[in-house]
């Protein structure tokens, strides 16, 4: 990058005292390899300490600093300035209620997590447990989830519609237990009935924004959906249904 200054635009609002958002402009000196979080923190530490941001590890491992950078859900700590140019707009995740500036209220996630049945080991297994190394792999992909909520933010079902859909992050969590080789519970039916799994129409936006590159749609959501269909597929019941339908028509 030749420009040595970043033009940063940050959404500011305390919903308790301000009706709508305002975008404030800041100029931040550019440093090699800088990420968006560095720039936003520069503002906080040098220009306005009341700017609310949430961050912790600064290593893309804790999933705290989720925001929308030039409209795309991203981790601020993982987005290098030199990959997006020096005009940067940062706003909070829109799928969650705003607390202040770039900080949103993500506490609903805990309520949802609480609803999903936990890991429940099969009974009477000999200890210590033995697991085939290959069987660890399937669940391992989902274990990468850092619960950053970016997939929830990008999901149009979560974002724009009031449905019971738990959202991709929670389906990943459920899938990590469903695919645990020693787990004894099938969560797919529950996800379908209570978790609104059917509302997901597989646009794969969640997969695109996942900073851990989890194949959320292909490896978590679709297998859970397929499981539900398998469980509900009962050829005899379908045959009887079909005959009754015909009878109705004949009458």
């Amino acid at each position: 990058m030749t420009e040595k200054e970043i033009e940063l635009k940050i959404m500011r609002q305390d919903p308790e005292t301000e009706k709508g958002p305002r975008y404030e402009n800041y100029k931040v000196p550019y440093v090699d390899g800088m990420v968006v979080l560095d720039a936003v923190r520069y503002v906080q530490e040098h220009t306005d300490p009341t700017l609310a941001i949430r961050w912790n590890c600064k290593a893309a491992k804790c999933g705290s600093c989720s925001a929308e950078i030039n409209g795309m859900p991203k981790l601020m700590c993982k987005t290098r300035v030199d990959t997006i140019g020096n005009k940067i707009t940062v706003s909070p995740m829109a799928a969650f209620p705003l607390i202040k500036d770039l900080v949103t209220d993500v506490s609903k996630n805990w309520e949802t997590t609480r609803k999903i049945p936990m890991f429940t080991p099969k009974e009477n297994m000999e200890k210590p447990w033995r697991i085939n190394p290959k069987d660890v792999e399937r669940s391992k992909e989902f274990k990468k989830c850092i619960e950053c909520g970016l997939c929830m933010d990008v999901c149009h079902v979560v974002r724009e519609h009031y449905t019971p859909y738990f959202g991709p992050m929670h389906i990943v969590k459920a899938a990590s237990w469903d695919m645990h080789p020693l787990d004894s519970v099938d969560r797919s039916k529950y996800l379908n009935k209570e978790g609104g799994l059917g509302y997901c129409n597989i646009t794969k936006c969640c997969t695109e924004v996942c900073p851990e590159h989890i194949h959320i749609t292909d490896n978590a959501i679709i297998p859970e959906k397929e499981r539900v269909v398998d469980l509900q597929y009962d050829p005899i019941a379908m045959l009887i249904k079909g005959i009754r339908k015909k009878e109705k028509v004949m009458k």
Partner: peptide
Amino acid sequence: LELESYGALFDRTPDGRIM
């Protein structure tokens, strides 16, 4: 081992024990 009983996964040895 207690963590494992809570649902934590660990990489395995070829014979299935914790690596």
